[in-house]
Design a protein around this nucleic acid. Structure first.
Lengths: 207, 207
DNA sequence: CTTTTTATATGAGCATGCTCATTTTTATGT
DNA sequence: ACATAAAAATGAGCATGCTCATATAAAAAG
């Protein structure tokens, strides 16, 4: 069978749309790939011609949200914010775009964004993480921290960011205000670290 | 069929031993529950009379390591450490006991310890987290922070701790020295937060 | 218009975590 | 000893993510 480029794009789009719909209603884990295929008018196996895994399919939406969030950020950023303010704006821009995906975000992010070592790393997940961290590094650079933060700082940033996502993903307060304090604290803490606060190592040595 | 209490305990122990062996060689994900059952001299289904899921089976080992780590900590703690030192000792004691499980720890901890919302929460995982956090609270209390840390502080702690575990789980340096810096920084950062450094909220408001 | 080539759709089928009706073994009561 | 009840072992079977040989439709070549 051969299909027009247009039909192919339409299939891909339809899969993403239907998947988002069903994920939202039934959750990520209770939605089967057969559900999605059939709802998209395709056979069970065909879905995997478009996305190599259920995880990648979901992460495609997340990655898109991340990208849009970054664009929003660039548009909203005035350049007059201090480092903490700018990071807050950056994180908030991302969350705003992730908002529609919130009902099924938990299991997806847990699998794909986690820094725990795994066998089959999801490509989209890696890309999302690197893209995000890269943007953070750029922001930091613009604020005059010439020496790039080391692995310690960036590892801590990612840990805190995942914590924010996890908390925010099931923050029951109407507009996720409860998450704001967490974001605020986390960012301020991170800024302190890369500002070199307490940068003498080995104070507590108890190995 | 009815089996002596002794035989039952022996089965349980054998399952745990064999599972650890095979996990270590093949990794968590490449080990099937059938592998474990057969190696333990049991039929495929029998394993699930002893552990409700593969995840719980693995987490049983993790929980045991956590518990032993806590005991070690109490034994090694002199009471003269400052807060950061004591927390460092606590974390190090846990890691020491987790060491044998390192080869297959990644996927297990990712699933079971993650704060991301999921449908089927693993009981052992919840217990491990609460036990750990509880111990941390106690340590903090002993150091004269009467008002218990709020959810923000404890959420941040857990985020940082998971980051430590993830980094440590595949830290290639001979004795995981590279993880020490991360632990050190993370703990010092946490101590700063609960010490009230920058406790005025809402400085960066960009929602 | 026919043939050939190529890209894609298809659904049977596999592996695996887990369930459950059934079978088997032990303990208890007489 | 024997019968009955309780507890645990068993393996067939299910759901589901994913693979792959095959079928099929469009495009290219003749």
């Amino acid at each position: 069978m051969r299909i027009s480029e247009q039909a192919k794009q339409e299939n891909r789009t339809r899969i993403l749309e239907k998947a988002a719909e069903i994920f939202t209603v039934k959750g990520f884990e209770d939605t089967t790939t057969r559900d999605i295929s059939l709802a998209s008018g395709l056979a069970a196996g065909t879905l995997f011609n478009y996305f190599p895994s259920k995880e990648t399919l979901a992460m495609t939406m997340v990655t898109e949200a991340f990208d849009q969030g970054r664009e929003d950020f660039l548009r909203r950023c005035t350049g007059k914010e201090d480092l903490a303010e700018e990071l807050f704006l950056f994180v908030a821009s991302g969350l705003r775009r992730l908002r529609p995906l919130r009902p099924f975000l938990g299991p997806v992010l847990e699998r794909s964004l986690s820094p725990f070592p795994r066998k089959n790393v999801c490509q989209e997940g890696e890309a999302a993480r690197l893209g995000h961290l890269n943007a953070v590094q750029k922001i930091i650079g613009r604020h005059g921290f010439d020496e790039a933060p080391d692995y310690v700082a960036m590892t801590m940033y990612w840990s805190l960011y995942l914590g924010i996502l996890a908390y925010w993903a099931n923050d029951p307060s109407p507009n996720q205000e409860a998450s704001q304090a967490l974001i605020d604290y986390s960012i301020r803490m991170f800024v302190q670290v890369i500002s070199g606060a307490g940068s003498d190592k080995g104070e507590a040595d108890a190995g």
